[in-house]
Nucleic acid binder design. Sequence first.
DNA 1: GTATCGGGGC
Length: 466
Amino acid sequence: MPSILRHLSSVTSSGGLINKVDSFRQLHHNTNSLKSNHTLKHYLESGEPIKALLNFKQRFRESPSFVDSFSVLFAIKASSLAHKAPSFIGKQIHALVRKLGFHSVIQIQTSLVGFYSSVGDISSARQVFDETPEKQNVVLWTAMIAGYAENEKAVEAVEMFRRMEEERIELDEVIATVALSACADLGAVQMGEGIYSRCIKRKRRLGMDLTLRNSLLNMYVKAGDVEKARRVFDETLRKDVATYTSMIVGYALNGQAQESLELFKKMSQDSSVSPNDVTFIGVLMACSHGGLVEEGERQFRSMVEDYNLKPRDAHFGCMVDLLCRSGRLKDAHEFVNQMPVKPNAVIWRTLLGGCSLHGDVELGEEVQRRIFELDRGHVGDYVALSNIYAAKGMWDEKLRMRDRVKKRREPGKSWIEMGNIIAEFVSGGSDDDGKLMVGEISEVLKCLVACMTSYDYVVDNFNSSY
DNA sequence: GTATCGGGGC
């Protein structure tokens, strides 16, 4: 059975009357529709979402009746993938969904949730979710929770996951993977372990999903628990790129440069995997944190020459960081100027950090100008330069720089997991001292815990004035 | 229809 038909039967099996009419139209009256849906699918699979959208639009104009629930599903998917396409195209397709009565098709609603999440419009995503009549469906919840997680709303993601479990919807590997990544962002290890064990209990016989194990490994890495991460790594017999990469990054982040590089070496000897560009971010980070400049330069070259991987901003950033940390500011500057792509604000900012570290006023001033050409919004850029002035005793310049700070600092967030409670803290957002004193807050939290034991999870905001 | 791997800085 061609995959498109298999797909169709899954749509009709859960759909209502409208879908049966729709599928009837597609199968019996409209072979053209089937054929052109195949074209849409082809564009999607070959990474040409814009072409898919144009194709859809043209077809809808010429013969609207050929557009069925499948075409719409592919068009939504294309809108999510086409980062360059303006988001109103997706919204137009959403309007079309309503007009054609497809909003009762759960696959379409799920895809719409994914679309709105991909353009950062999480409230519209939530609206689609809320408007979906039949919600007893893991995949719909997965799309919504993944949307929160992708848009840096891990607390909401976790909260929603808790609600999903209350609704007695069964876990699968995908939702567990998404939930673990939200837990990783919060450092909520205990909760993540619980989710993991609940999930594998059901599926023990089928063998565990590698993606799920990787996200467990990643959670330990994010929480700084390298030992537990390594245990998961060793127990995972069939490893893929992400397994190795997470572990390599884990060592690099925790200052174990040697272990990171040794693991990379071991990975190179494993013929079943080959490193990708993310792996090299980990390798370069390890070199940077370990002060291994020559090794880093060698690896960077090897990445391009031996592995044919194209360095991205992140790799250039690692190299700048590497050169800056070892005091080679001139080389770092030259490196930035010789980059084959236009350096972004983050790269310049890394260099500014290097100037701050080594007290280079002249270069710092120039770099700050380059940053301001791209982005004037960051308070930290004023602070960095004002600190360079301060270190050199240039008090007038320092004060002038501080006076130019107009915007207040973005509030910071932090989370603490204690038992089955997650508390969120939001710092005040002042521009001088918004640091969170986690130790002190946890004392406050201990008192809170005593008062709140009747809840499973409590999400709490309060301003810290420490 | 849904899924994991990214720095540094005040």
